[in-house]
Design a protein around this nucleic acid. Structure first.
Length: 564
RNA sequence: GCGCCAGUAGCUCAGCAGGAUAGAGCAACUGCCUUCUAAGCAGUAGGUCAGGGGUUCAAGUCCCUUCUGGCGUACCA
């Protein structure tokens, strides 16, 4: 499945290494260790399609000038002339490679023959990987942060899958512990307020203040009336939670569906309590002498591992902390379900949790480097140049569902994947609903629709020739055509680099670039015109661009319009 | 105070494992549709890459430091 450009680069590295070894053998270069050979993509195509800085990097090792070293390497260098037509030394000692017309033609043949599979590779082969994302608290509605995390997590999962990983997507439902207790108390107060009057029952400050709690209590009241007013508090609370929690979880599932996100599993935190897993990991830590009791609480000796302070595992009220159950959860991911790599996507406000979780994992003999935490910074919603905090319609804090009422899932998924996760972002509502080129998702979709339009106007006679396969691609020599082909040639490498860095946002930028290359080509050249040979080649090129663009849109679950 | 993240054109941001002359879009100005979708393209103008040191053949990119902003520093999650 080796992709053409990747193969060319690998071969080139071998050739360069051979050439250098040859020169060492001949005494032309000092017999020292050769630095790693890097092949780069020059920013300026005047410098060729590929280049290496090996002569500069090795100047010190060989105690020679970069230009001399480059000359010596070039003297011995044997490359595949059918794919690399020119090699030159430039600048301070770069060695630049110019790819042949055959390479460009072969790229198109590869794309066309792989079709929907173009971009697939085995970079992550045999690696079982989990992406856990969104994992919104089920005590309330989902917010803008969940929207960003959701788009990032889902698209990252797709990229990793394409890169060959065995990907499992999970939503962690925090349906246990302290915040459920808080949820219960909040519901309880609201329920009693309905019956006894708002002024007669006070909502404590540490309860959830949101309107959604009131709504849930009211729904409960509509069904059961005052039935649970006089019963035991504990029973009332548990009835309220039993009623409200599934409703919230259902709503999250609906929101996710609307957002085109489907999880392989919704993992309930409560399961860790039912199976006593939380107590088990606490006991494991205790058995290693890593816990102690103070003020009625059980603490983890985090300071023993260089962290700032020790952390509570079990509160004095007996309820384990989020930290404790998260240790159990990650123990489950690695030691029970045997994932090789786990990626957690968190809002940046959780970053303080990383060090202690990793520390606890190491204490449980789990290699914490297998856990990657992807942090994303906060999102602000902006409309008409102003920050929007509340929904005008409902008067409540902006929720994910409000966003999706205004903005298409296509637009939201794309725009949340434009900015690198670890930078703050303003989500521009005006831009997101705009159906023109300013909205990058339309810009890309438009390129696809344009191609479809061209393909629709291909004359039947030409279509027949195309199907017979009599296409000579060597006539695609203009700078626009070459740029377009070369960019498509790099797609698989882009996928690998995104998978390596766990960053889906580069693919978004890549497809925008590709769309630009296509629009430029479109304006510079006519596809349907009187020269059959060139027409056939350009149609073939268009088909390939359509393949790559639609592969990416499909990857990100964004619609692929044929007309716009 | 300490820790994490950020600071690039008037605005919003790219800059992919340090590479060649720092790039887009928006806003401003100028062109390109009797010809495959102008939701497009070409051009002009716009910069002390927050400041200062350092490492390197080469620094927006790495290190140190100062300044500015966000977040964290709970028996919240």
């Amino acid at each position: 499945m080796a992709n053409l450009i990747i193969k060319v680069i690998e071969d080139l590295k071998i050739s360069l290494a051979q050439s250098i070894n040859e020169a060492i053998k001949d005494g032309k270069l000092l017999d020292n260790k050769i630095p790693d050979i890097n092949i780069e993509i020059p920013a300026d195509r005047a410098h060729g399609e590929l280049s290496t800085n090996i002569a500069m990097v090795s100047a010190r090792v060989f105690r020679n000038s970069p230009l001399n070293i480059a000359k010596i390497i070039l003297d011995n260098l044997i490359v595949d002339k059918s794919l690399i037509e020119k090699v030159e030394i430039a600048g301070a000692g770069f060695i630049n490679f110019f790819l042949s017309q055959k390479f460009f033609s072969d790229c198109l043949l590869e794309i066309k023959s792989m079709g929907q599979d173009y971009g697939k590779c085995d970079y992550g082969k045999n690696k079982k990987l989990m992406v856990e994302f969104v994992s919104a608290n089920p005590t309330g509605p989902m917010h803008m942060g969940n929207a960003r995390g959701g788009a990032l997590g889902d698209c990252l999962s797709s990229v990793l899958k394409l890169a060959g990983f065995d990907v499992f997507k999970e939503f962690y439902v925090n349906d246990a512990g302290n915040q459920i207790e808080k949820f219960a108390s909040s519901l309880d107060v609201r329920y009693r307020q309905i019956i006894e009057g708002e002024n007669n029952v006070i909502l404590p400050e540490d309860c959830y203040q949101g309107e959604d709690i009131k709504d849930l209590a009211y729904e409960f009241y509509k069904i059961y009336g005052e039935k649970y007013l006089s019963c035991d508090v504990k029973e009332r609370k548990s009835k309220l939670v039993e009623f409200a929690l599934p409703k919230n979880i259902d709503r999250m599932k609906k929101d996710m569906k609307k957002y085109n996100i489907f999880f392989d599993n919704w993992f309930h935190e409560s399961l860790l309590y039912e199976n006593d897993d939380v107590n088990k990991v606490i006991k494991m830590l205790s058995d290693k002498g890593l816990t102690y009791e103070l003020d009625g609480a059980i603490w983890y000796k985090a300071t023993q591992f260089g962290l700032e302070k020790d952390e509570v595992l079990v509160r004095k009220n007996g309820i384990p902390t989020y930290f404790a159950s998260d240790i159990a959860y990650h123990y489950n991911k690695f030691k029970v379900r045997n994932f090789d790599i786990c990626i957690d996507i968190w809002g940046a406000d959780h970053h303080g949790h990383i060090a202690r979780l990793k520390s606890a994992m190491e204490s449980l003999d789990i290699d914490s480097s297998k856990l990657h935490i992807l942090l994303f910074q906060f999102v602000r919603l902006v409309k008409s140049g102003e920050v929007v905090r509340m929904s005008k319609r409902t008067g409540k804090a902006i929720q994910l569902s409000d966003l999706l009422d205004e903005v298409s899932a296509d637009s939201a998924r794309f725009l949340f994947n434009i900015k690198e996760p670890n930078t703050k972002m303003d989500f521009d509502l005006d831009l997101a609903v705009k159906e023109d080129s300013q909205n990058p998702v339309y810009y890309v979709q438009y390129a696809h629709a344009r191609i479809c339009s061209i393909l629709r106007s291909v004359p039947d006679s030409v279509r027949e020739k195309l199907e017979k396969g009599n296409v000579c691609l060597d006539v695609l020599t203009s700078s626009e055509e070459r740029q377009l082909i070369y960019n498509m040639a790099l797609y698989t490498m882009q996928i690998i680099s995104c998978a390596r860095d766990f960053d889906p946002t580069r693919i978004t930028k890549y497809v925008i670039d590709l769309a630009t290359d296509f629009h430029k080509f479109y304006n510079a050249h006519k596809v349907i015109f009187d020269d059959d040979e060139i027409m056939l080649a350009r149609i073939y090129l268009c088909i390939c661009v359509k393949i790559v663009i639609s592969n990416i849109l499909r990857l990100f679950k964004i619609s692929i319009p044929e007309h716009m």
